[in-house]
């Protein structure tokens, strides 16, 4: 992660990130036979992003596909390709460079032009709506919220991969607070997915999709999230209590904390409380450690993997898509 480092172009950041993943995996580009990318045209300010960026991610004369999705979906597709025998070793990479563009104006352009755009709504406002719904149901719970925000900042400070505090926070509207905001970052994240024996393996993947119109959704139940996690756990033949680690993507602290209630880890109303109490939940510091669509699901996966290496056996990473987490992806990973 970095912020507005003018010494690198976007392609150079991507090259550096993917090279580092190859190096960390003790492999070289010649061993790679496919590439799955997650990148978004508007974030990248290149109207067909992968045309310019895919070669920087190792796609030269390789089988490559780009999703306009969260990075964890790319990981899932790469997993499918490996499982199908179509690929032996696949680069999965996702990125977003918040410092080059203006996320909130891009987000406004994602809203329905007839019904929603006139009000200037952004992803941040959807997060605020969700929190307001929760506050309506459970009351202010100020102590837990403040404590969760403090703990999150502590964890982000301890995360060696986190963006430093010179990067700006995304501005939020009430009832969200400044210390619940994501810290903007330029992020490239890459992983290698292959069929050969490895210390870490993916044992379950789940996908969920919510209603199209935000107004049709249950703000707190979040069926997309719930389905994704349940499916991933089901495939891994595990339950929530078997997991040592949860890395959950949410744009704001509220999204992260309330997700714990939706997946059934926290009691209703105790999302912030559990977030503050448990060091197994977003030990990376979540979006306070750096945030940029569409890299975050893969960042959560990488954090989960690196922390499992250091201790713990099983973890889950959750990624989410735009328009208020309309689709969600969960990946269970286990270390031997």
């Amino acid at each position: 992660m970095s912020w507005a480092d003018a010494s690198y172009s976007l392609e150079e950041l991507i090259f550096k990130g993917v090279k580092r993943a190859l190096h960390a995996s003790k492999t070289c580009i010649d061993a790679v036979d496919s590439v799955v990318l997650a990148a978004h045209d508007l974030v990248d300010g290149r109207s067909l992003s992968s045309m310019v960026t895919a070669p920087a991610a190792g796609a030269y004369l390789r089988d490559e596909i780009r999703l306009a999705e969260d990075g964890l979906v790319a990981l899932s597709l790469a997993g499918a390709r490996v499982a199908a025998g179509e690929s032996e070793l696949s680069i999965v990479a996702a990125w977003g460079r918040a410092s080059e563009g203006d996320f909130l104006s891009q987000s406004r352009a994602a809203m329905d032009p007839f019904l929603v755009q006139p009000f200037g709504l952004t992803e941040a406002d959807i997060s605020a709506f969700r929190l307001s719904r929760w506050l309506g149901a459970h009351g202010p719970q100020d102590e837990a919220r403040v404590r969760a925000a403090e703990m999150r900042l502590v964890r982000a400070r301890q995360n060696p991969r986190a963006i430093d505090t010179s990067a700006p926070l995304l501005p939020l509207n009430a009832p969200l607070r400044v210390d619940e905001a994501p810290r903007c970052a330029d992020i490239v994240v890459a992983a290698l997915v292959g069929s050969r024996e490895s210390a870490c393996h993916i044992s379950g993947i789940g996908h969920g999709t919510d209603a199209t119109l935000v107004g049709d959704r249950d703000w707190l139940e979040r069926p997309a999230l719930r389905t994704a996690v349940e499916q991933a756990l089901g495939e891994a033949r595990l339950s929530l209590k078997d997991l040592d680690l949860f890395e959950i993507d949410g744009m704001t602290l509220a999204d992260e904390a309330l997700a714990l209630e939706a997946i059934g880890l926290a009691e209703p109303g105790d999302g912030f409380g559990l977030y503050a109490r448990s060091d197994r939940i977003n030990p990376s510091g979540g979006s306070a450690a750096g945030w940029c669509y569409p890299a975050m699901g893969l960042v959560r996966f990488a954090e989960c993997l690196l922390r499992l290496d250091a201790g713990g056996k099983r973890g889950v990473a959750v990624g989410s898509s735009p328009i208020g987490d309309q689709t969600q992806t969960a990946v269970v990973l286990e270390v031997a």
Binding site: L48, M51, R66, Q106, S107, P113, T212, P223
Partner: peptide, 29 residues
Amino acid sequence: APDALAGINHLDMHAISRPGIPYFRVNTG
């Protein structure tokens, strides 16, 4: 493909994605 052609970012989220069915979008021009 390019979101810009429709002038709506994440057009697919409005128009293609269906609740309850896994969904993702490909963009290779």
